[in-house]
Design a protein around this nucleic acid. Structure first.
Length: 271
DNA sequence: AGACAGGGGAGTG
DNA sequence: CACTCCCCTGTC
């Protein structure tokens, strides 16, 4: 158990911003599954309280050690992004496990959050180890190599993504994933895109959420919508154009800008 | 009730 | 680049 004082951190906004999928709120606590870890956490004003992992992990996982103020200053390029930042002050990027992150975003294609959660929980249940915290039971996310039964993967309702997950599981390991951290952005992205089921968006999510590439600017339909509306005079442009624009305009922490815009766009509906 | 789209990607042309 | 299909589920 532990308790930390935090500044500029909003637990709920961070957890519910579409970065991670395996968490659940019970009686004021968030129970969070992160690869092989299961912990619970809650926020009371500027304090967070947690059980199940040590403080070092919490600080790392929720990016509490970063120069947050400086990052916000760097991406704060205009009144609109400023508004998005102010409305969702405390939103942080989570530092995920790269393997779980990659599979999660392969599952995300043409899907939505509840269904992604369902797929990941089923995969964990079928291939991972059972865990318990208080009266809450869940399953650890299986290691690479463990998600090796194609029929079971289908059973997790992964649909056409089943073959992608199966192939990726059989060819990837942590050494290969972690080695991507040392590559330049574009090379790391190209490497990820070699996996079936991984295109620009899934690669960028994996790079941003789990491999430390803060310049990555994932383009999904929400980001496409808001960027076109605010920066392209509401004209339809290719995703590649939006990707390039985001990285050029917001700079080395473009991924943070993307996260604020994503939450802002979703909160404000599809108008 | 059946068509349709949903926080992409691959395979075509 | 534009277009279609991919599996599945909830929705109108």
């Amino acid at each position: 158990m532990g308790m930390i004082k935090v500044d500029d951190f909003d637990l709920q906004c961070t957890l519910e911003s579409g970065q991670i999928f395996r968490f659940r709120e019970i009686n004021g606590w968030y129970y969070v599954s992160a690869r092989d870890k299961l912990f619970k956490i809650r926020q009371l004003k500027n304090k967070i309280e947690f059980h199940g992992v040590d403080q070092k992990f919490i600080v790392y996982y929720f990016s509490l050690d970063e120069e947050h103020t400086k990052i916000l200053e760097e991406i704060n390029k205009d009144p609109f992004i400023n508004k998005a930042i102010m409305e969702h002050r405390g939103l942080r990027l989570i530092r995920q496990d790269p393997w779980e992150c990659l599979v999660a975003f392969i599952c995300s294609s043409a899907s939505n959050i509840p269904r992604i959660t369902s797929k990941l929980n089923s995969l964990s249940q079928f291939f991972g180890k059972k865990q318990r915290l208080d009266d809450y039971t869940n399953f650890a996310f299986p290691l690479p190599g463990k998600i090796n039964d194609y029929e079971k993967i289908k059973e997790a309702k992964t649909g056409f993504r089943a073959k992608y997950i199966f192939e990726t599981n059989n060819t990837i390991d942590y050494e290969r994933l972690n080695s991507l951290k040392t590559l330049p952005y574009q090379s790391a992205k190209d490497e990820l895109k070699k996996f079936n089921g991984v295109g620009d968006k899934v690669a960028d999510c994996t790079l941003l959420f789990s491999l430390g590439f803060y310049q990555a600017f994932p383009v999904d339909t929400w980001i496409k919508k808001i960027i076109q509306q605010r920066y392209f005079n509401n004209k339809t442009v290719p995703n590649k154009t939006i990707n390039n624009f985001g990285m050029d305009y917001f700079g080395r922490y473009a991924g943070y800008a993307q996260q604020f815009l994503f939450v802002f766009s979703r909160m404000n509906g599809n108008t």
